[in-house]
Design a protein around this nucleic acid. Structure first.
Lengths: 292, 292
DNA sequence: AACATTCTCTGACTTTAGTCAGATATTCGC
DNA sequence: GCGAATATCTGACTAAAGTCAGAGAATGTT
C-alpha cells in the first residue's frame, strides 16, 4: 500500500545517514571521544548538569565523569547553583568556547560540503527540500495529550493565547469580558484540555466544554507561532472531536473573531458550518456548528 | 554568504539524525550488537568477506570475530571460494534470512512511523521532498575523474554507450561505420577520457579529442540511466571545457543524433550553437560549436 | 621452486560507552 | 528539627568497538 513511499524513505535514510554520519568522523578527528564533544556542544552559558543529562540522555555517573575530563582539559568550569546547593552549573572557559567554536565550524563545513558541488539553483532546491523534510518530520513528531488546565504547560498556552488575542483583535482582549471557560469546565468529566507537545515543549492547546443536550463547545484553540504550518490546529480539532464522540456528544459549536481568518478556514475545511449566533460572546463575529 | 542555507542544513541534520537514529535503537532491541546486525544486513547471497570489509569499513580481525559470532548463532554459513581458496564466501542460512527479514521489517516500520501521523497530502510532500534531498545529495557526491580509455570502467561505459545508441537510433548503431575515436586519441596529450563516479561505480563518461588549429571535439558523452537527472552530463561537459581551455583550445565542436534530444538541450543551454556539418559522421543530424 | 603477496583468522590488547549500587551533601515538607 | 527526596559524585563493573602484530594457507611472480 505505501510500498513505493516506504522504499523512497529508506533510500533517503541510507543516503542521509551516510552524509550526515560524516559529522561524527570529523568530530572524532579532534581527538576527543564523541560523547565529550557532544557534551561540550550542549553547554551554553551556565547550564545545569541535570538539563544536560536530560538532553543527552546520559547516566548521571557517565556525565559526571565526562565533565571531570572536560574540566581536566581546562574547557569547563563548574560552580554550585546559588539558589540550590545541590545542583551544579557548568560554564565554558575561554578555551572551551574556542573549542566549541571549532566544532561549530566543522558542522558548518559539513553543510558547505553539501552545497559546494552544486549549482546555485540546485542549492536552492536542496535547501528548500531539506526545509520541507524537516518541517514534516517535526509535524509528525507532535503529540497531543490531555493535560489538567491548571498545569504549567496549560497555563503557559493560555497566557500566550490571550496575549495573541489582545494583539490581534482590533479592540484588544480582556478575558473577564469574554465568555468564560473555568478550569473545572475543562476538566473531565465536564470537559477536556489538550496540549500539543514537540521536543518536550508545549506548542498549542485546545479545549472542549461539554454543555447540556449532547452538545459541546470548542474553546482555546491556539498554536504557537513557531509551530504554525505543521497541521497542529487540525490535529487538535480532530482530537477534540474524537473525545467528544467518545463522550457521546452529537454536536460541536464554536465562535470566533473575524481577525482570526486562518482559524475560520480551518473550521470550514473540517466541516463546520456557519450558524446564527448561539451566545452573546462580545468578541465573536462568526458562530459555527458541526454534527458529529 | 550561505549563512541562511547553512543554518537550514544544520537544522535538517539535527532533526533527521534524531529521527533516523531511532533505527539503531530498534535494531538493538533484537538483543544483538549493532555491528552484528549491520553485518547481517549486508550479507546477500554469497558475498565474500573482503567486500563486506570494504562496505562496512571494518578491521579484518573485527569482521572475522563478528562472522564467528553469527555462525555460532546459526545465521550464516561460510565456504571457501571455489576459484580462490584464500577468500571466504558468506551466505545466510534459512535462520539468517529470517533474521534479516526481521531487520528489514524494522526499517520499514521506521519509515511507516514517519508517514503514519501525517495526512495523505503531507505524506506525498514528505516523500517528494525526501526524493529531492536524496537526489541532490547524491548529485553532489558525483566525482569526475580522468581515466585511461582502456580501463575497465571506461570500457564498461563505452559498451553501455554503444548499446544505448544502437537501441535509440532508428537505424541502429555500428561503431565501425561511425567516425572513430581511438584509445590513443582520448589519452593525453592527444585527448582526454573522463569518467563520473558515484559510490565506487562509474555512472557516465565523456571524451575530448584534440584536433589541429586550437580546436577540439567532444565525444562519448553518456550518463547511466539510473543516474540521470543529477546533472552529470553538464558537469562532464564543463569539465571537458575546463581541460580544453587548459590545453589552450579556443573552439569545441561536436555532433549528435536527432534521437538524443536531451543531449541537444544540454548543448544549447551550455552555449553551443548549431553550425553547418563539419564532418561526414553518418549518424549525425546536428553539428554544434562553442568558442571558449 | 622460492619468494612475495593476498586473504583470513587469532590473540592480546585499549578505548568508549553504558550500568548499577551506594556515598555525600543539600533541600523540601511537615 | 527530622525524615524523605533530590542532585551529584565515586567505585566497580560489563559490553561493545576498534587496533595491531603476527600466524597460516593459498595464490601469483619470476
Amino acid at each position: 500500500m505505501f510500498k513505493g513511499q516506504i522504499e523512497q524513505i529508506r533510500r533517503f535514510n541510507r543516503v542521509v545517514t551516510l552524509h550526515v554520519g560524516a559529522l561524527e568522523d570529523s568530530y572524532l578527528q579532534r581527538g576527543r571521544p564523541l560523547s565529550e564533544a557532544r557534551l561540550l556542544h550542549e553547554i551554553r552559558d551556565n547550564t545545569d548538569v541535570r538539563t544536560l543529562r536530560e538532553r543527552l540522555k546520559l547516566d548521571s555517573g557517565h556525565i559526571s565523569r565526562l565533565l571531570r575530563s572536560l574540566k581536566a582539559q581546562g574547557l569547563v568550569r563548574t560552580t554550585a547553583d546559588p539558589s540550590d546547593g545541590r545542583v551544579r552549573r557548568v560554564a565554558l572557559t575561554p578555551g572551551g568556547l574556542n573549542e566549541r567554536a571549532t566544532y561549530e565550524a566543522l558542522s558548518d563545513e559539513l553543510a558547505m560540503s553539501f552545497l559546494r558541488p552544486l549549482e546555485p539553483h540546485q542549492r536552492d532546491r536542496l535547501v528548500d527540500a531539506m526545509a520541507e523534510v524537516e518541517r514534516l518530520l517535526r509535524a509528525g513528531a507532535v503529540e497531543v495529550r490531555l493535560e489538567p488546565p491548571a498545569s504549567a504547560a496549560a497555563q503557559w498556552c493560555l497566557e500566550q493565547y490571550f496575549a495573541e488575542l489582545s494583539a490581534r483583535f482590533e479592540v484588544g482582549f480582556d478575558p473577564s469580558r469574554s465568555n468564560p471557560a473555568s478550569p473545572e469546565e475543562m476538566t473531565p468529566p465536564s470537559g477536556f484540555f489538550l496540549v500539543a507537545w514537540l521536543d518536550g515543549a508545549p506548542q498549542g492547546c485546545g479545549a472542549l466544554k461539554i454543555s447540556d443536550g449532547g452538545s459541546g463547545e470548542v474553546k482555546r484553540m491556539w498554536t504557537a507561532p513557531t509551530a504554525r504550518g505543521l497541521g497542529i490546529g487540525r490535529r487538535m480539532l480532530r482530537s477534540l472531536e474524537a473525545m467528544a464522540r467518545e463522550a457521546g456528544l452529537t454536536r460541536l459549536r464554536l465562535e470566533t473573531n473575524r481577525a482570526l481568518n486562518e482559524a475560520q478556514t480551518l473550521y470550514r475545511s473540517e466541516g463546520y458550518q456557519e450558524v446564527a449566533p448561539f451566545n452573546a460572546e462580545p468578541y465573536a463575529h462568526h458562530w459555527f456548528e458541526k454534527k458529529l
